[in-house]
């Protein structure tokens, strides 16, 4: 007799638990306000990334097309993957002494793992993270970027 009751109580509890589960999905079905999907290409205009978002490594330039990089190469040493290459150049300054400046700061985005060591260890805070995240290209060579903008020079006083 006991097992007879157990048979029916099993059915009852089983059906009850199934109905509870269905109530969850059913409730979400009738509450379209809870939809969390973002409509990505449509919301591109007002898509705001967080300020610390690591999109890509950039060299910070000010309004006069000047940056703070003196080509010391600490970022290159700190990069675990060798995705940064610093090519320095020597110029002769106004006082006649030859001076080390950056010629090309080459950044291989395809190899970067965004560990942030270059940005953290830069002694003159020349590097930063950009907000760009749409990196897809058809040619891998386009992922190699030169970070210092053409014609840019170093800000006076940070050498």
């Amino acid at each position: 007799m006991n097992s007879f009751f157990k048979y029916f109580s099993d059915i009852f509890h089983g059906v009850k638990s199934l109905l509870i589960g269905m109530s969850v999905t059913g409730r979400y079905f009738f509450s379209p306000g809870q939809i969390v999907t973002q409509q990505y290409p449509e919301n591109r205009k007002n898509l705001q990334m967080f300020e610390r978002f690591k999109g890509e490594v950039i060299m910070l330039h000010d309004g006069n097309n000047q940056h703070r990089c003196n080509g010391c190469g600490i970022c290159e040493n700190n990069c675990p993957n060798g995705s940064i290459e610093v090519i320095p150049a020597k110029i002769t300054g106004e006082d006649g002494k030859s001076k080390r400046v950056i010629d090309k700061h080459i950044y291989h985005l395809g190899m970067c793992t965004f560990c942030g060591l270059c940005v953290k260890n830069c002694p003159s805070n020349a590097l930063g993270f950009g907000q760009e995240f749409e990196h897809a290209v058809f040619d891998r060579s386009k992922l190699t970027k030169v970070l210092n903008q053409p014609g840019s020079s170093i800000i006076k006083g940070v050498e």
């Binding site: 509890h13 638990s17 199934l18 509870i20 589960g21 109530s23 969850v24 999905t25």
Partner: peptide, 8 residues
Amino acid sequence: RILSGNVI
């Protein structure tokens, strides 16, 4: 509700 208590 949806998984832990479910009889299945």
